[in-house]
């Protein structure tokens, strides 16, 4: 209980620090909103020309995008503290978290909260809402109850991936390229239904780098895409389980990374 209070205090302090720059905070919210709106716009440009991608129509695509972007917003809110982690490592600031009687990862997470990520979530929620409406999703109780679990699962997958790629920095020091590739470019794969890729890549996005569970498989479930089944229909409801798996693996990697850091000093 006491521990939760400590992290809460950390998070609030980081919020207050952030709000020292109020103007830039609001500009940032605005910019992030426009950035994702531009992404959504390019999706609409494609859909205006081609009408559908492998049977996914504009509403379906918006829903797919919404699941991805909404959970991205929550992920960024929680894991923003890991941004530029390699710089903390290189300039020695990470040491500070090690001389305190708290968990280093939790200290990082809670010490640079970024509230401007509401922008992702707003765009994501709007895309989810209109996507669901356009594609005429029938909200059965089962679907409505599943949505939060799917979001949490998506957050765990993305958060786990961030922890994992930052753990890599314990060995390589500079990890900006891998973060960029895995966290930001990797996401590009699942803006579109993964059925557009060859079998190898579908396998990769399902079983190796399982980001298809953030949006593609659950969207199949919500949109009742019974016509297409990849691998196994059960995958549609596995997002929370995959999330737990990913976060567990990544925490092991993080632990190994800290051990390595403490023995190599770099």
């Amino acid at each position: 209980m006491g521990t939760i209070k400590i992290y809460w205090a950390l998070a609030m302090a980081s919020m207050r620090a952030r709000l020292q720059y109020k103007a830039s905070f609001f500009v940032l919210v605005f910019a992030v909103t426009l950035f994702y709106a531009a992404q959504l716009a390019s999706l609409f440009v494609v859909m205006s020309s081609f009408k559908q991608i492998n049977g996914w129509h504009t509403g379906d695509m918006a829903f797919l995008f919404g699941l991805l972007t909404f959970s991205l917003g929550v992920t960024t809110l929680l894991f923003n503290g890991l941004q530029n982690f390699d710089a903390l490592l290189i300039n020695g600031e990470f040491d500070r978290t090690l001389v305190r009687p708290l968990n280093p990862l939790a200290q990082l997470m809670f010490s640079r909260f970024e509230a401007s990520t509401v922008a992702h979530s707003v765009i994501g929620a709007a895309a989810l809402y209109y996507g669901a409406k356009m594609s005429g999703i029938v909200w059965t109780p089962q679907k409505a109850a599943s949505l939060p679990f799917v979001i949490v699962g998506g957050v765990l997958i993305q958060g786990g991936i961030r922890i994992f790629v930052n753990a890599v920095a314990f060995w390589t020091l500079r990890n900006a390229a891998i973060v960029h590739t895995v966290v930001f470019s990797g996401r590009e794969f699942v803006v579109y239904p993964i059925t557009i890729y060859n079998a190898g890549v579908r396998f990769f996005l399902t079983f190796v780098f399982p980001i298809a569970f953030i949006n593609f498989y659950p969207a199949q479930f919500f949109l009742d895409k019974t016509g297409e089944t990849l691998f196994h229909p059960a995958l549609r409801s596995l997002t929370p389980a995959v999330g737990l798996l990913v976060i567990t693996i990544s925490l092991y990697a993080w632990k190994a990374g800290i051990d390595h850091y403490q023995s190599s000093g770099s």
Partner: peptide, 17 residues
């Protein structure tokens, strides 16, 4: 501006699109 990341982000959004 103290923080120009928002402008950079905006620029990227426009360039990507």
């Amino acid at each position: 501006f103290v923080e120009i990341f928002p402008f950079t982000l905006l620029k990227y959004g426009l360039i990507n699109l």
